[in-house]
């Protein structure tokens, strides 16, 4: 297992994915991107690739490559990408030299805002708007991390091979947010939103419970026994998924 590769996948497919919701639910960021019509392709040698596309006030983050991106950012290795996410390295622009101003001034406002929401402090979470956004993005990060852990982490591969096919839904009640993870043949895929006929469900009864639960501030067993978190369906799917989720912290702190 190459831990840099796993981390690069998590950064690109789970962390960066949050830009979509950030641009939708944070008014300042929504305003910031409202006039953007630009796309950024991330290419990592011997690693993952993904692109961002800003258009008509929306942000889309997707795996793979797009045709004719405005900007191409190249990374010589997964480690290079990870260092950039940690603020310790810069990408190599391959295309879009005329957009360097965008990259150095406008785009960092977005990524800085993402970092802000993903690094909660005791003080910050007292702010209700911050707490809401942090909880939403944490659920997304968890859901979109699972396919990467299942595919690239050596323990994750063993565990996911035992998870039966079907979809697990994680819901924050009442109707605040949800994410679905579908397992098939040992592989996993994630999407935001609910699904019909899930095989297992985890419901957090409110935003406060979800924030504590997802950020590891509450004990899962106690939360379940007390009814703050309800689980139902094929519980082994949730048990195994929980082990996959706990693997994330080996890569992302």
């Amino acid at each position: 297992m190459d831990s840099d590769l796993v981390k690069a996948n998590l950064n690109l497919y789970a962390v960066l994915k949050n830009l979509e919701d950030l641009c939708e639910y944070d008014k300042e960021m929504k305003d910031l991107i409202s006039s953007w019509n630009i796309s950024i392709q991330f290419i990592v040698r011997n690693g993952p690739s993904a692109f961002l596309h800003f258009s008509r006030g929306k942000c889309e983050v997707a795996r793979g490559s797009m045709k004719n991106p405005s900007i191409v950012l190249f990374f010589i290795s997964p480690s290079h990408l990870n260092r950039m996410f940690d603020g310790k390295a810069n990408p190599i622009p391959f295309k879009g030299f005329t957009k360097l101003g965008f990259l150095s001034k406008e785009f960092p406002r977005l990524t800085d805002r993402l970092s802000y929401y993903l690094r909660p402090t005791d003080e910050l979470i007292k702010n209700n708007d911050y707490f809401k956004m942090n909880t939403r993005l944490t659920l997304n990060t968890a859901a979109f991390s699972i396919p990467e852990i299942a595919a690239f982490d050596s323990t994750g591969i063993k565990i996911s091979s035992k998870i039966p096919d079907g979809t697990v839904v994680m819901r924050i009640l009442p109707g605040f947010h949800s994410a679905s993870i579908t397992f098939s043949g040992g592989a996993a895929s994630a999407q935001k939103g609910d699904t019909e006929n899930p095989m297992a469900v985890m419901e957090m009864k409110n935003l406060e419970v979800a924030g504590d639960f997802l950020n590891g501030r509450s004990d899962p067993f106690t939360a379940i026994a007390s009814g703050d978190v309800s689980i139902m369906g094929l519980i082994p799917m949730l048990d195994n998924m929980s082990i996959l989720l706990d693997r994330v912290q080996h890569y992302l702190s």
Binding site: F221, A225, G227, S230, I231, M232, I235
Partner: peptide, 16 residues
Amino acid sequence: CGIYGHYSPAPLVPAS
């Protein structure tokens, strides 16, 4: 976890 092992309420669905 309050009650551990095979007596844990976790697999008792719903625990309530």
